[in-house]
Every structure is written in structure tokens, then in C-alpha cells.
């Protein structure tokens, strides 16, 4: 078995070397660690055709769902670093999960290629809620218990709620729901009072967004202020999606992919399709993303340590 594995690895190396000059020369597998049709899968499929056109090869998406994306990411981390297996991971899988649980990958397992989408988180309430502003919300939370629709501890809506609690010194009743659709339904139906989730969902589901946790207002929500404008604490939270190769992938391949990704994400057809889906296109190349990835990893590690979630 070992011998065969070694043989395969050797063969892969030998084949990979002459191939590097004209990478890619065959189909590339793209692991998506969530099911088809979900937020991660959609984000991957939006960039897929543009990247295929530029690379001149097929990107074959394999949906490998399970355990917050860690099943797919673990399989990916173990795959050959030859540029023919890539993964499209949301921040939750790449950065949050390794800090929450024992998984077989960490901040050094991946070679970040490019960020394609960066969806800011916003604070929203139901359309008929008497709460009309972030100040109202905090006042309501101070006066009485209000409930926040979140997901499991360490998920982005949960981290959003925790950051608000800590910044404003309030306590929210944390109701963990399964996913963003369930959270939005619960807010719409008045079963929970608020949520700190993707602000794009607020547009899609008709929630009332109060503040955006980002540097700037969103083009799609020009009337919704940033938390800084409201004089609030500088909380920043977003769900970002990026393309990765396994660590150890030759730099030339990573560079080539990063350049191709830049070309793909700068196409207006791509940007329009992303914005139509209430998402925010955002490119960051390999070098910048590597720094950002490490910073985020550390920030989340520190935060989880403080709130007692660090593994």
C-alpha cells in the first residue's frame, strides 16, 4: 500500500514537472465542502465558468458536505499539491472550524489563491419590528431580554451576536438555528427578535437591516449606515469565500491561478451575477490573501480564547 502510494506520488511529481510550463493541461477538481445549491456552492459556481474560460480547462466541482465543511476540507488538505485539486472554502470552514474543533488541518495546510466574494454581516430585525435603529436595539436589550437568531457556537451569526454583546455590554438570548434560511424565517415570523447574519439575506428575505459591520456602506443598501457611522464600536465581520490549493503547491501554479482569478473576478459579467445574487464581489490575490488569512486566523483564535470556545 505504502509502496503504491509512494509510487503514485512519485509518478505525480514526474508528470507534474514537465507539465508546469503549461499548467493546467487537464481537468481540475474543485472541492466544495457544502451541498449543491447552498451559499458556498453558489459562490463557487458563479466563478467557475469564468475561471474555466481563462484556464482553458474544466473545473469539476465535487460537493463533499459534512460537519461544517470540515469533511471536505480535510479530504482536500490530504490531496496532491499539484494544482489539480483545489478547494473553495468559506471563512467558517477555513478559519473558524480549526479553532473550534480538532480537525486534520490548520493555518498552514492551505496555499490561499484568491478571495472571490466578501459578504458583510449586518444587524437586522423583522420588517414589522418596533425596533427602528441600532440604538433602539441596544436600549431594548438593556431593558429586557431579546433573542438573537444564531447558529452553533463559533458560527458567524453567533460570533456577530457575541461581538455585539461584548461591545455594548448587553446579554442576548442566543437561539441556535440550523442555517441562514432558518434564521431569516425565524426573524420574519417574529420567533426571534434580531440576527447578525449576512446583510444580503436581509435584502433577499425582506428583513429590516439596522447596521452593516463593514468599512463602507453597501451599494445594494445605500441607506443602511455602517456601525462606525452610528458611533458604535469598530466591529468587522464578514463571510468571505476563497480558492485554495493544498500547502506545498508550486508557487508558479499558485501565481498562475491567482492571476487567472483576478482576470475572472474583474469581468463585469461575473460581478453583475454576484451582485444579482445579493452578494458582494471582492478580489484579493494570493499574496494579500495569505496575510489576511493568517491575521483572521489569529483574530478568531484570540476571540475564541476570550469567549471560551477555543479548542
Amino acid at each position: 500500500m505504502m509502496k503504491r502510494l509512494f509510487g503514485t506520488a512519485l509518478a505525480a511529481t514526474i508528470i507534474a514537472f514537465p507539465a508546469m510550463a503549461e499548467y493546467p493541461e487537464k481537468d481540475i477538481e474543485l472541492i466544495v465542502p457544502y451541498g449543491a445549491g447552498g451559499g458556498t456552492d453558489t459562490a463557487a459556481r458563479l466563478i467557475q465558468p469564468h475561471l474555466e474560460a481563462i484556464l482553458g480547462q474544466n473545473l469539476i466541482i465535487t460537493n463533499m458536505p459534512g460537519a461544517g465543511g470540515t469533511v471536505g476540507a480535510t479530504n482536500f488538505a490530504k490531496s496532491n499539491a499539484d494544482g489539480y485539486t483545489l478547494a473553495f472554502l468559506p471563512a467558517g470552514t477555513a478559519v473558524y472550524q480549526p479553532n473550534l474543533r480538532d480537525v486534520a488541518y490548520d493555518e498552514n495546510s492551505f496555499a490561499p489563491i484568491c478571495m472571490t466574494i466578501n459578504d458583510p454581516v449586518g444587524v437586522s430585525v423583522g420588517p414589522d419590528s418596533p425596533i427602528g435603529s441600532l440604538d433602539d436595539l441596544i436600549a431594548a436589550a438593556k431593558a429586557d431580554t431579546i433573542s438573537a437568531g444564531t447558529a452553533s457556537p463559533g458560527s458567524i451569526p453567533h460570533v456577530g451576536a457575541v461581538l455585539l454583546e461584548r461591545a455594548y455590554g448587553v446579554k442576548l438570548k442566543n437561539v441556535p438555528l440550523e442555517n441562514s434560511a432558518k434564521i431569516s424565517t425565524a426573524v420574519l415570523g417574529g420567533h426571534v427578535d434580531m440576527t447578525a447574519d449576512l446583510v444580503g439575506n436581509a435584502i433577499k428575505f425582506g428583513l429590516k437591516p439596522l447596521a452593516v459591520l463593514a468599512d463602507e456602506r453597501l451599494d445594494s443598501l445605500p441607506d443602511v449606515p455602517t456601525i462606525d457611522e452610528l458611533g458604535g464600536p469598530p466591529i468587522r465581520l464578514s463571510i468571505w469565500f476563497a480558492l485554495y490549493a493544498p500547502a506545498g503547491t508550486p508557487q508558479t501554479i499558485v501565481d498562475k491561478l491567482s492571476e487567472s482569478c483576478e482576470a475572472a473576478t474583474s469581468q463585469s459579467a461575473y460581478q453583475d451575477s454576484v451582485m444579482d445574487a445579493n452578494r458582494s464581489p471582492h478580489f484579493m490575490g494570493s499574496a494579500d490573501l495569505s496575510d489576511f488569512f493568517q491575521q483572521e486566523f489569529q483574530r478568531i483564535a484570540d476571540l475564541f480564547m476570550e469567549i471560551g470556545l477555543k479548542k
Binding site: G35, A36, R45, L46, D276
Partner: peptide, 17 residues
């Protein structure tokens, strides 16, 4: 849910509008 993802990619975004 899968159908919704497919529609979204086609620029048809199911939602309140």
C-alpha cells in the same frame, strides 16, 4: 434548495421581490 441555487446562478433570485 438546490433548485434555488441554480436559479440564483441564472440571475433569478428567489426572495420576497
Amino acid at each position: 434548495a438546490i433548485m434555488m441555487g441554480a436559479l440564483t446562478i441564472h440571475g433569478i433570485v428567489p426572495g420576497v421581490f
